[in-house]
């Protein structure tokens, strides 16, 4: 039965890591705007990826 203790420890650690992930998400302002990201993902950036990259590099320089 002591194997249950190990399981408990594992499940508890898992749960804590989920909680930590949630807390991080909230602190990272991910709940500030729950709508815009859903539109953002639909936007097509592939067409001019090259141009994109060029500009980004320029900006960094």
């Amino acid at each position: 039965m002591t194997v249950m203790l190990i399981l408990i420890v594992i499940s508890f650690t898992l749960a804590i890591s989920f909680l930590a992930a949630f807390l991080w998400a909230v602190k990272n302002n991910q709940y500030e705007d729950t709508f815009t990201p859903s539109l953002r993902i639909l936007m097509d950036n592939d067409k001019n990826n090259e141009e994109n990259n060029d500009l980004r590099i320029n900006q960094v320089n």
Binding site: S11, A15, I16, L19, F22, L23, V26, K27, Y31
Partner: peptide
Amino acid sequence: KSIFLKVGVAGFAFGN
């Protein structure tokens, strides 16, 4: 934000 944090913690405690 704090209400979300609190619900998160409460939900975590509740489940466990």
